[in-house]
C-alpha cells in the first residue's frame, strides 16, 4: 500500500540534472556532429512506427490501383507509350551530344564526371516538425546513403540528406528556412545563393547586383560551388524581380522546379562524398 503523503519523485536534483542534460545536448546537436550516431540509433528504433503510419496511404493507393477500370489502364498505357516515344527521340539526340561533349572535354583536359550514380528512394508519409521543411525517405545507411547527399526528383533538386538511420533518412528541402543553395543563372552565368523561406513554392534571392540582367522566367541551376550539390541540375525559375532603389540591390523570387510537396519517388545522387553537415 502506498503512503499517500510520501513525496513523489518530483524532486529538485534529477530535475536540474535532466534540464542541464537537455540543454547540453541541444547545444551539442546545434553546433557539432557528435550526436548523429545517437540520433541514428534512436531513429532506427522508431522506424517501424514510421513505416506503420505510412501504411494507410500506401494501401489506399494499392486499392485504387487494383480497382481502376480497364479504360483508365488503357488510357494510361497509351499515354506512357507516347511519352516513352518522345523521350526516346530526345535521348537519341542526347547520346550524340553526350559523346560530343566527352570528346570536347577530353580535348580541354577537363575531368568533370557527366553522369552521377543515383539511388531511387521513396518518401515515407510522416509528418515532421510543422515549422520546417523536412521529409523522410525509406532508405538509409544500409542502402549506402550518406549525410550531405543531394536529393532530386524528375524535375529538379529537392534538398539534401541531413540525418541517416539504418533504413530511413531525413532530407532537408531547399525550401526549409535554414537551407541555402548555391545557384547560377543559365543565361547570364551570374552566381548567387537561393534561400528557402518555409513555403514549398518559393525561394528567395537577395542582394543581387542592381545591374544584373534578371528577367522573369530565367532558369536557375546548381552552380556546384560549396561542394554539396553537383553542378548543372535544374533548381528553380524566376517568378518575381524587384529593385531596392535605396540600397541599390535587386532581389528575386523563384519557384522550385522540383515538386517539393507532391513527389513520391526521389533520386539520391551517390557520387558525392560525405561532408561535415555543418558546411552548407
Amino acid at each position: 500500500m502506498n503512503n499517500l503523503f510520501q513525496p513523489a519523485r518530483g524532486t529538485l536534483a534529477p530535475f536540474f540534472l535532466l534540464v542541464a542534460l537537455s540543454i547540453t545536448s541541444m547545444f551539442i546537436d546545434q553546433r557539432f556532429t557528435y550526436l548523429e550516431t545517437a540520433r541514428a540509433s534512436i531513429a532506427s528504433v522508431i522506424s517501424p512506427l514510421r513505416y506503420l503510419v505510412t501504411l494507410p496511404s500506401l494501401s489506399g493507393a494499392w486499392v485504387s490501383e487494383w480497382f481502376s477500370t480497364h479504360n483508365t489502364l488503357v488510357e494510361d498505357n497509351r499515354q506512357l507509350r507516347e511519352e516513352e516515344r518522345l523521350l526516346n527521340a530526345r535521348l537519341q539526340k542526347m547520346n550524340v551530344l553526350l559523346a560530343e561533349n566527352t570528346r570536347l572535354r577530353k580535348l580541354l583536359g577537363a575531368s568533370r564526371k557527366l553522369s552521377d550514380k543515383v539511388i531511387v528512394a521513396e518518401l515515407l508519409s510522416v509528418d515532421q516538425n510543422p515549422y520546417r521543411q523536412l521529409i523522410e525517405l525509406n532508405k538509409g545507411s544500409l542502402d549506402g546513403l550518406l549525410d550531405g547527399q543531394a536529393v532530386l526528383d524528375d524535375y529538379g533538386i529537392m534538398g539534401q540528406i541531413i540525418h541517416v538511420a539504418h533504413n530511413s533518412s531525413t532530407v532537408k528541402l531547399i525550401s526549409d528556412p535554414e537551407h541555402v543553395i548555391p545557384v547560377q543563372f543559365i543565361h547570364s552565368g551570374l552566381r548567387s545563393v537561393a534561400f528557402g523561406n518555409g513555403s514549398t513554392d518559393e525561394l528567395e534571392l537577395r542582394f543581387l547586383p542592381a545591374t544584373a540582367e534578371i528577367y522573369i522566367g530565367d532558369e536557375l541551376v546548381t552552380s556546384g560551388l560549396g561542394g554539396r550539390f553537383p553542378a548543372d541540375y535544374p533548381v528553380a525559375t524566376i517568378t518575381e524581380v524587384s529593385l531596392d532603389k535605396t540600397h541599390g540591390f535587386k532581389s528575386a523570387v523563384a519557384r522550385p522546379k522540383a515538386r517539393l510537396d507532391s513527389s513520391r519517388e526521389v533520386l539520391v545522387i551517390q557520387s558525392r562524398e560525405s561532408r561535415q553537415p555543418n558546411a552548407q
Binding site: 534540464v19 542534460l21 537537455s22 540543454i23 545536448s25 551539442i28 546545434q30 512506427l49 514510421r50 515532421q128
Partner: peptide, 16 residues
Amino acid sequence: VAQGTLLGQHSLALVI
C-alpha cells in the same frame, strides 16, 4: 528524433 528537432528540445519542455 521523430520530428527532426534538436535533441533535447522536447525533452526540456516535457521535463519541466
